[in-house]
Each structure stands twice: as C-alpha cells, then as structure tokens.
C-alpha cells in the first residue's frame, strides 16, 4: 500500500526525498531549521522586551507633557538610591523573598524526605496530589482565602478567641505576606528537593550506617550535600516568584507593605513614568542574575 502511494506521488516525493537527503548530509542545517522558529520568537519577544526595558530605564519623562524623553540619564537610578522610601521597598521585597525561601526550605525538606524515602507508592501519590492541588486552583482565590483567615475579624482571631487567647493582629502586615508567600510557593520547593532525594540511591544511606555513622552524621555528610542542588533549584523558584509578585502585597500586605512590583505597577498605570518603572524593575532582574549564577556554580540546574 505504501509502495503504491509512493509511485503515485513520485514527483513531490522526489523533492521531499532530496530535501531530507540534503538535511541528512548537513546535520547543522537540520538543527538550524529546527531552531530558527523558536529562537526567532525568543529573540524578538523576550530579549527585545528585556533590552527595551533596560534601555528605557536610562530615559526619563517630561514632567509637564508626560512624554518620554529619549535622552540618556541616570536620574531614575539616583532617585532609587537616594530615596529612603524606595530603598525600604527594595529591601522589603528582597528580605521577604529571602525569608520565604528559608521558611520553605525548612518546611519542604521533611515533606520531601518523607515522600521520597519513607512513604509507600500509594501514600506518595496521594501526598503529591495533595501538595499540587493548590497550584491548580486560582492564585487569587487562595490569597483571598488567606485574607479571610488573617483579617482582624478572620478565622485565626476567632479561633484564638475561642480558646481564650488575645487576637493576633497580623492581617495586612509583612508577617502576613511572609506566611502567605511561604504557603503559596511551598510546592515549588518540595518538588525539586523530592527529585534530589529520590535520585540518591538508598544504598548510600545504608552504606553510611554500615560504616558506623549515626543519623545526624548521615544527614550532614551524605543526605544534605547530595540534596543541596535540589534545595538551590527550589530556592530559585520561591525567591524569584516572591521577588516579582505584586498581587499578594496588595491583598494581604495592605498600605505599608508595597513590593517593587507595586511601585512598577503604579508608575506604569497611574503615574505613567515608564522609565522609572523600568529602572526599578531592573533591580530584581539583577538580583536574580546574581542568584542564578551562584546557583549554577552549585549544580542546581541539573535538578530542574
């Protein structure tokens, strides 16, 4: 049957055959043919936007007309460096992102270890589903749910009142943001740590015990060093996702808890100062760049 088809459509098949034979002889051309469309997309949409952002950071806006003046200036960065408000916001953003990352490492490690080493296949699948379930729900809905828990007349304070404890006024504070971010990004930490622990052959733990090491030595000398790449990989997620967020600060953080993202949003939407927004947006980009280069050295990219 296929033979008949080949004979019927001889001329086009010959062209196709010649093309594939040519690509076979020149594998570089074949690779190029594969890569040009996605690379073109990547360069045009992603890199161009990033370059525009970076270039725009060195422009400024005419105070009267509101139009962008295409003249090089460091004024935006000077404002950022000298204004205590913006410095506070930048430090708050990076600080909470770091706190969230550390919290998630501490919470995720035992979960990941339990799932990878102790739980049976059935329990493991159940735990995985439970862990990933929130990711499939709306981000906004989950943040709102936390608002209901942490608000002054929320579930938390009601529960504290029921057992006779004073209310914990953590709604609309940095602590609330830290809690919510830690909850929301936790699965992104558990998954790579789980993958890292699962990759360690069980015989290594037995060998450690066999050679006379107790639990603590096995943990510090064998488990932890082999799982560090997974921890770093997870921290890339939790850190960068927190760093770039601006919804949770609005819904949970309230007035005194702006993130870099909120300032960027306000300057793009309300103040219409795109160059300043661009300048502020480069800060998390630079922080992430430094972070990723450290992570790469520690071998975290093999865990992604």
């Amino acid at each position: 049957m296929s033979q008949g088809a080949a004979i019927d459509h001889a001329p086009p098949a010959r062209l196709g055959r010649r093309l594939s034979a040519m690509l076979w002889r020149r594998p570089r051309w074949a690779a190029a043919a594969l890569l040009v469309p996605p690379m073109g997309w990547f360069v045009l949409i992603y890199l161009a936007a990033l370059v525009t952002l970076f270039v725009a950071a060195f422009w400024q806006v005419d105070d009267f007309t509101g139009e962008i003046i295409h003249r090089w200036t460091l004024r935006n960065f000077e404002t950022l460096a000298t204004s205590p408000t913006y410095r506070t916001i930048a430090l708050r953003t990076v600080g909470i992102a770091a706190a969230v990352t550390v919290t998630d490492i501490v919470l995720a490690f035992p979960c990941a270890y339990f799932m990878a080493r102790i739980a049976g296949p059935k329990l493991r699948a159940t735990l995985f589903t439970l862990m990933l379930l929130p990711i499939w729900l709306s981000y906004i809905a989950r943040v709102y749910a936390w608002r209901l828990i942490l608000a002054h007349d929320g579930v938390l304070n009601w529960a504290l009142g029921e057992v006779g404890l004073p209310p914990a006024n953590i709604g609309y504070t940095n602590i609330a943001m830290w809690l919510v971010f830690s909850y929301i990004w936790l699965p992104f930490m558990i998954t790579p740590i789980y993958a890292a622990i699962e990759r360690v052959p069980g015989s290594l733990f037995e060998a450690s015990a066999d050679l006379g090491a107790r639990g603590l030595r096995t943990f510090t000398k064998v488990t932890l060093p082999l799982v560090v790449p997974g921890i770093i990989a997870g921290s890339i997620f939790t850190f960068s996702l927190t760093l770039g967020d601006y919804i949770t600060p609005v819904l949970i953080g309230g007035t005194g808890s702006s993130f870099i993202g909120n300032v960027v949003y306000a300057n793009v939407g309300i103040a219409n100062d795109i160059p300043f927004a661009a300048a502020f947006a480069t800060i998390p980009a630079v922080v992430m760049l430094i972070y990723l280069s450290i992570a790469r050295r520690l071998g975290a990219f093999e865990m992604l």
């Binding site: 052959p201 015989s203 037995e206 060998a207 050679l211 006379g212 090491a213 107790r214």
Partner: peptide, 25 residues
C-alpha cells in the same frame, strides 16, 4: 562492614574521603 551490589560509593567524595568516612565515624 558490607560491600553493596552497586558499591554505594559516595559520589560527592573522593576515593580517599570515601575510605576515611568509616574511620571518622
């Protein structure tokens, strides 16, 4: 001491560090 089927050498340690592990423990 046990010799494991897959040898179970610690991949993040050198040969000498692998040998010293039991002595240190």
């Amino acid at each position: 001491n046990t010799i494991f089927q897959d040898y179970a050498l610690f991949p993040h340690m050198t040969v000498a560090e692998n040998l010293a592990y039991g002595l240190e423990a």
